[in-house]
Computed example of a mutant assay.
Amino acid sequence: MTINPITADGSVSPNGTAPKDTAPADGTPTVELRGAGKAYGNVRALHGVDLAVHPGQVTCVLGDNGAGKSTLIKIISGLHQHTEGAFLIDGEAVRLNTPREALDRGIATVYQDLATVPLMPVWRNFFLGSEMTKGPWPVRRLDIAAMKQTADTELRAMGIVLDDLDQPIGTLSGGQRQSVAIARAVYFGARVLILDEPTAALGVKQSGVVLKYIAAARDRGLGVIFITHNPHHAYMVGDHFSVLRLGTMELSAARADVTLEELTNHMAGGAELAALKHELAQVRGVDVDELPEAAELQVGAQRN
């Protein structure tokens, strides 16, 4: 089975190849983890993780619940510090103390709750916490016209056309709200965009909308970290795939080196399912010959 990647205009690449790499000539990743890990006391949540995020590429991080995806996000976004290995930005080893430091270095995170105020207009949410003002101090006031114009221009640059920017953002669909959050991060200077399960609670059509804007962000030169548990969504936009399992990196492969079936196999826990079949062979009354092969079990588990 082959899934062709989505391009920024929402079409599908006919040759099944991901868009060209727009990384610098020296190949230095914007963000890189080398053997990174995080321990909370005696509990090791992440260990020995290698990850490289290049400009103009989508790096998909997949994993089941408890695999370490959230811990990985917290390290890169500056919420938590790594306790082992190295964290590099533009080739320089760093230790971020706050999310503000990550933002100052161009790393923006869009969480599942999107950090929006549902009853506020779209344009207010676009500039939430960074409003434009005009007039002399100390009686400066909001520059509403400029914020509306800028929000409309930036949203259109991402291919998002809204009829009314004064409508509460809570009236938009889930896919549209995700798209506004992505455009906001791009406008405020993000070079690396971390998307935390953006399609998790969306239907097929709205997921397609979000995937289109992920491709648009990539084609504008951003490095995108797409956190997901859905290998089908990942394979449509991904350039590189990393699968986490129990805090360690089980798979790290470029798009050309892995098929959708193989990605689904790793995501569904191929080794565990194969071991389960072996254990069932020891149980009286269970005919393992009637059970599907491990790969079939894994695909079935993913569909469920």
Score class of each variant (00 low, 15 high):
residue 93 A to F: 08
residue 59 T to I: 06
residue 157 A to Y: 03
residue 40 Y to V: 10
residue 33 L to K: 10
residue 163 D to L: 00
residue 81 Q to S: 07
residue 180 V to P: 05
residue 114 L to E: 00
residue 276 L to K: 12
residue 260 L to S: 03
residue 77 S to C: 14
residue 2 T to N: 10
residue 50 D to G: 06
residue 92 E to S: 14
residue 10 G to C: 05
residue 143 D to K: 01
residue 26 D to R: 05
residue 195 L to R: 04
residue 197 E to G: 02
residue 257 D to P: 05
residue 126 F to P: 02
residue 216 A to G: 05
residue 246 L to Q: 11
residue 197 E to F: 06
residue 95 R to L: 12
residue 104 D to P: 09
residue 291 L to T: 11
residue 298 Q to F: 12
residue 141 R to T: 11
residue 237 V to I: 13
residue 278 H to W: 07
residue 169 I to L: 13
residue 215 A to W: 05
residue 151 A to R: 07
residue 273 L to N: 09
residue 249 M to F: 00
residue 46 L to H: 04
residue 85 G to V: 08
residue 243 V to L: 01
residue 237 V to L: 00
residue 1 M to E: 13
residue 224 V to R: 03
residue 165 L to P: 08
residue 295 A to I: 15
residue 183 A to H: 02
residue 72 L to V: 06
residue 140 R to G: 03
residue 243 V to H: 00
residue 294 A to T: 15
residue 84 E to I: 05
residue 97 N to C: 14
residue 166 D to P: 06
residue 85 G to L: 09
residue 63 G to N: 08
residue 209 V to F: 00
residue 160 I to G: 04
residue 49 V to P: 14
residue 150 T to V: 09
residue 223 G to V: 06
residue 210 V to N: 04
residue 157 A to G: 08
residue 48 G to W: 12
residue 163 D to Q: 03
residue 211 L to F: 08
residue 82 H to I: 09
residue 89 I to Y: 14
residue 220 R to D: 07
residue 3 I to H: 08
residue 205 K to P: 13
residue 214 I to G: 05
residue 193 L to P: 11
residue 216 A to D: 05
residue 118 P to F: 07
residue 212 K to V: 04
residue 168 P to C: 14
residue 235 Y to Q: 03
residue 186 V to T: 01
residue 43 V to K: 07
residue 286 V to H: 13
residue 218 R to L: 10
residue 15 N to L: 10
residue 217 A to L: 06
residue 237 V to R: 03
residue 78 G to F: 11
residue 184 R to N: 06
residue 26 D to N: 12
residue 36 A to C: 13
residue 148 K to H: 10
residue 296 E to I: 07
residue 74 K to D: 05
residue 109 T to Q: 02
residue 277 K to A: 14
residue 133 T to W: 08
residue 15 N to Q: 01
residue 110 V to D: 04
residue 236 M to S: 10
residue 188 F to G: 11
residue 47 H to F: 09
residue 109 T to C: 09
residue 178 Q to N: 13
residue 267 M to E: 01
residue 110 V to I: 12
residue 109 T to D: 08
residue 33 L to F: 14
residue 159 G to L: 05
residue 130 S to H: 05
residue 304 N to W: 15
residue 263 L to S: 02
residue 27 G to M: 04
residue 217 A to V: 01
